[in-house]
Amino acid sequence: MAKTPQLDVMRSPLGRARGLGSARAGAHHWWMVRLTSLALVPLTLWFLCAMVRMVGATRDDVASWMAGPLPIVLMIALVIATFHHMQAGLQVVIEDYIDTDWLRLGSILLVKGLSLLLALACIVSVLRLGL
């Protein structure tokens, strides 16, 4: 008796042929969102306290504050965690709502590129102010 063909995976043959499916990066993405959010809990509270003290500050005030060993390090940490968290979150939003393939991929790449550039602009500015 001929053996009936069997599927040993939960994907349809069509899905496999099209090559659409898990990139096996989901767990890492999920974990990085949690990791950055945990880091952002103390960093955000510190940032808000710092910004309240910067109300009405002159440029010299900002520079002399940023020159301290703690602010310069924590600001860079905040920037990295913020923009990493941001691009990961926006990616999920884009994947949820944009159906058209090229538009979805294009938007994700745009968000990732802009996040990286903004983060770099912030880090360079922090270094220029504080060093």
Partner: peptide
């Protein structure tokens, strides 16, 4: 964007 503007302007 606002935070970036503020930091870049200060620098």
């Amino acid at each position: 964007l606002l935070m970036t503007w503020w930091l870049v302007a200060a620098a």
